[in-house]
C-alpha cells in the first residue's frame, strides 16, 4: 500500500487514489488525420517498464484532481509527483 503525496492534499494512503496508467500520452489534436497505425499507437501502445515510469494518478476519494507520478516499478518507490501540465522532472529519464 503506497503512500502518495497528492500535490494538493499531501501524503495519503493509496486506497484514496486510483491509477490512470502511463502519463504524457497526449490525445492527438486531429485524430481524423491519423492512419490506423498512428491512432493505434495512441490508443493501445503502452510502455511497461521495469524501472522509472511516469504515471497518472487521481486523488479519487480526496480532491478529485489528476496528477503525475514518477515511480520506480522495480521497488515501487515514488520519486516525484507533479501537477498536470507541469513538465516532468528532468533528472528522471
Amino acid at each position: 500500500m503506497f503512500l502518495i503525496n497528492c500535490p494538493f492534499c499531501g501524503e495519503r494512503d493509496q486506497s484514496e487514489f486510483s491509477s490512470g496508467g502511463e502519463a504524457h500520452i497526449v490525445r492527438p489534436k486531429q485524430p481524423t488525420e491519423l492512419s490506423d497505425d498512428e491512432w493505434a499507437e495512441y490508443l493501445f501502445m503502452r510502455k511497461n517498464i521495469k524501472g522509472i515510469q511516469f504515471e497518472r494518478w487521481n486523488h479519487a476519494h480526496g480532491c478529485r484532481k489528476w496528477f503525475n507520478v514518477v515511480r520506480d516499478t522495480s521497488n515501487d518507490k515514488i520519486l516525484s509527483v507533479y501537477k498536470m501540465g507541469e513538465k516532468p522532472p528532468v533528472n528522471y529519464k
Binding site: C9, R12, S15, E16, H61, G62, C63
Partner: peptide, 9 residues
C-alpha cells in the same frame, strides 16, 4: 479533509 471511512467517501 476528504477521505474514506469504511470504504465510503
Amino acid at each position: 479533509t476528504q477521505t474514506l471511512v469504511n470504504h465510503i467517501d
